[in-house]
Write a protein that binds this DNA or RNA. Sequence first.
DNA 1: ACCTGAACACCGTTCAAGT
DNA 2: ACCTGAACACCGTTCAAGT
Lengths: 217, 217
Amino acid sequence: MARPRKPLLSRERIVETASALVDSEGLDAVSTRRLAAELGVSGPSLYNHFRNKDEILDAVADALSARIDLSMFDEGDARGWSDALHDWAVSYRGVLTDHPNVVPVLARGPGRRPAGLRVADAVFGAMVRAGWPPAQATYIGALMRYFITGSALGSFARGFVDDRDAYDPADYPHLGQAHLLAERQEKVDEGAFETGLRALVDGLALQYETFGEKTQR
Amino acid sequence: MARPRKPLLSRERIVETASALVDSEGLDAVSTRRLAAELGVSGPSLYNHFRNKDEILDAVADALSARIDLSMFDEGDARGWSDALHDWAVSYRGVLTDHPNVVPVLARGPGRRPAGLRVADAVFGAMVRAGWPPAQATYIGALMRYFITGSALGSFARGFVDDRDAYDPADYPHLGQAHLLAERQEKVDEGAFETGLRALVDGLALQYETFGEKTQR
DNA sequence: ACCTGAACACCGTTCAAGT
DNA sequence: ACCTGAACACCGTTCAAGT
């Protein structure tokens, strides 16, 4: 076949197919050969469009980042900084839990991914505008990301085995119900996320007040 | 050589060597052949001691979990639940940041790893004893793990590229200093962790009070 | 029981060759 | 410019063979 008159591939088509493959079969299923086969093409062809496999996965992750709602950080938005932070976190987590297999890639950080950088930029900018000192605003961006990606990555509930015998009461006196975690997974992870998010935002609000007092003296 | 009179390998020796290899060269460096070579043995030998590579990595992760301080959850300990939670988180994070390459394995959850289960058991037990309802105690164990593994996994600062030109002010108006994040990595990640941890614990304390009021009525 | 080499079915990536 | 097959240096895992 050699070179066709119309290109068979495009970065978009590769990213779309890779995304679908990660979602349906997991990160490990995305090999260059498998992905190429899915695209009706041979393995090395991908290297005409991406420098390497990591760049493909980065593009998949960035497409996800682009879907995180940032409108709550707009200047015109009436929400206070803490409500904005809360709503952003919910949107962020929603995107991740819809595509849990991509989370390990996203957890590597924004790197040079444009959408990832836009997210960091929006949060940092909004916190500074709300009166947080730059160092604290940086911390807030970081710690929110810790919590959100942590919650999407390590589904707490799925981390436990669905096997009563795995939890000998002599060894783990308080884990008698742990085998039920697996089936209640969604509920547990959602409850833990909401509880943690509220605690985080409330706790930050406390620090914000103290900091406000300090600067007034 | 075939079978030696004295076994060349043991689970302990394999786990120790694997741990050292992950720490020094990263998770990707641990292939069965490479690890076997490091042990002076051929690749398939490992399968006499572990069912597969994942079990080796699980053992490496569990050795780490075993080093997390849990003494603050002892019945005799005078700390309140929130101080205990705080101190445990600090110890947990310390173990992880000493061995950042293992974090992705640990983030998979306790599974059947004994030390991982002991950690979950201790936290849950202590929170219930402090008066938290079981459902909330489960949430607390989960959300703390989200935050701690999230912070160890995705070093926020290292996630940014150390290159001024990566942050065009037209695209990212607030990221003018982002290229400095890489060199300040430790400080930023530590500050974010401490800020977030305090917020989390303070926020939980607020919820604890409200819940206490409710049950008194 | 515990090690070996050979083998199977894979990887990511490079590169010369084709149009 | 964009695709191909062949090749290189790897993988994880199985298995018969050896003591």
